[in-house]
Design a protein around this nucleic acid. Structure first.
Lengths: 134, 134
DNA sequence: GACAAATGATACTAATATAGTATCATTAGC
DNA sequence: GCTAATGATACTATATTAGTATCATTTGTC
């Protein structure tokens, strides 16, 4: 079971790199050089981040990507949501009508409380906090 | 993102049913009647649980499955491990040598601490506690 | 204006994990 | 011996994740 899949991981690392170079547009070519991420795949990920207003982009020569907002306002949980869907640990149990005995719902409650904790913790992680190493 | 996939879910429900009928072997046929789980699939899941010593089985007419130990000693986290692999939220980050800047490891630490919490909570859930509705 | 370097949009393939099925072999009670 | 059960095993189907490719568009530079 993974909390973070590879595309989130890649995206996160790229965003961190971009955040560390705030004054200029960072191109895919540069990112590919520094990180071991397949070019086409990375391009796709960054395009998604642009659409989702995490990054902003400029075309043409000298173009590339910048953060669309302060690193303090970019949360890890947002990247996870974009690439992996909403954090919902108990999906199965809610969807299942057939949960036959009421008592089993004790499980649902427990998982809900775990989920709440996870989301809260993930919400405390921003790009800024990662850069600071906190 | 799911904490519990369908096979764990099915297995859990079956185990709970078996736990509620402790004095006799419960057959797949009976479980299929009560729960909406495809017969072949459920058979496979129960066979796995037998191999893993969560259940014990008896063949032949009147045969079926019983718990191999007290419901207090069967943990949800064990079922998750069996069907979904070990709970390891931060797999990606550990495996990646390329984690380029030390600082990003702040993330690893954070995710580790989240994982510790999740595992601890999951470890507190037993079949017995689910039956009691706690 | 032509060219080159960049992203945008889009559609596709590949690999892996999850879900489900089928069948023959073996065991045990009646 | 028949029947009802599980054991072992091999297979298919579906969904998710990972990765690739290509053409269109924009923009700076000569």
């Amino acid at each position: 079971m993974k909390l973070v899949t590879r595309n989130t991981d890649y995206a996160l690392r790229a965003v961190c790199f971009i955040a560390r170079n705030p004054k200029r547009a960072v191109s895919v070519s540069e990112l590919v050089e520094k990180m071991e991420i397949p070019r086409s795949f990375l391009r796709k990920l960054l395009q998604v981040l642009s659409k989702k207003k995490v990054l902003r982009s400029s075309k043409g020569q000298g173009g590339g990507f910048l953060l669309a907002r302060s690193p303090k306002k970019i949360f890890l949980v947002e990247l996870i949501s974009i690439f992996q869907g909403q954090v919902k640990l108990n999906e199965c149990f809610f969807k299942k009508l057939s949960c036959p005995n009421k008592k089993t719902c004790a499980l649902r409650k427990k998982i809900q409380s775990i989920e709440d904790y996870v989301v809260k913790e993930l919400n405390s992680i921003t790009i800024a906090s990662l850069l600071e190493g906190k």
